[in-house]
């Protein structure tokens, strides 16, 4: 079964994923501009983009465990998923800056004064070097350092989930579901059997 899946995956290209991945963003912005996102489209757009960003983070983090535990090899899609994640988080940030807060002095005050925004911002900044180095040239050039660098994804993902938990009103389950999903996916990467690693 897995072999069949892997065989199928080998036959498809990764590049169409970029096109498919951008469609929801275009659709959301179009909906927001034409009344499809309800009476307050700015917050709706901001939240939906952020949520897709988190979902893509989870998808990206799931690739390694899927290969390890299920033998399913989706690694060829990882770069596209990673870059799309960055794209959605960047849009989320831009909507917040340009459409939501609007006032430049307020933006800076918010970043410094509001912990959930500080945390979200750090998460975004950590993603910049990852997006910049998501190409074959950087992988060749950086060698082993590339892998170390891209482990920043783990930090960014946790910060993103904490950002979501911190901004919700009252006690809501959804943000915690995202946090738990991300922590679980990270836990699968821990080498529990330390001794064997040393040996």
């Amino acid at each position: 079964m897995i072999d069949v899946l892997n065989k199928g995956v080998r036959r498809i290209h990764a590049w169409p994923l970029y096109i498919v991945g951008v469609i929801p963003a275009v659709w959301l912005i179009y909906s927001g501009a034409t009344g499809g996102l309800g009476a307050e489209p700015i917050k709706a757009l901001e939240h939906r983009l952020g949520l897709i960003g988190l979902q893509l983070l989870i998808a990206g983090l799931a690739i390694t465990p899927l290969r390890k535990w299920a033998g399913l090899n989706l690694i060829k899609f990882r770069r596209a998923i990673g870059l799309l994640t960055f794209f959605y988080i960047l849009l989320h940030l831009l909507v917040w800056l340009v459409l939501d807060v609007q006032i430049l002095s307020q933006i800076w005050a918010d970043i410094i004064k509001r912990p959930y925004i500080t945390i979200g911002m750090i998460g975004f900044i950590l993603m910049i070097p990852l997006a910049v180095t998501s190409n074959n040239y950087s992988i060749r050039k950086l060698g082993a350092k590339w892998r170390r660098l891209h482990q920043l994804t783990y930090v960014a993902a946790v910060l993103g989930a904490i950002h979501f938990v911190m901004l919700s009103k009252g006690f809501q389950l959804e943000p915690f579901a995202y946090l738990i999903a991300i922590l679980t996916l990270l836990a699968t990467r821990i080498r529990w059997n330390r001794k064997r690693v040393v040996a």
């Binding site: 009344g35 009476a39 489209p41 757009l45 459409l99």
Partner: peptide, 10 residues
């Protein structure tokens, strides 16, 4: 500040 509902995306 506040945003009055109904003003659209901008």
């Amino acid at each position: 500040t506040e945003r009055k509902i109904g003003g659209g995306l901008f």
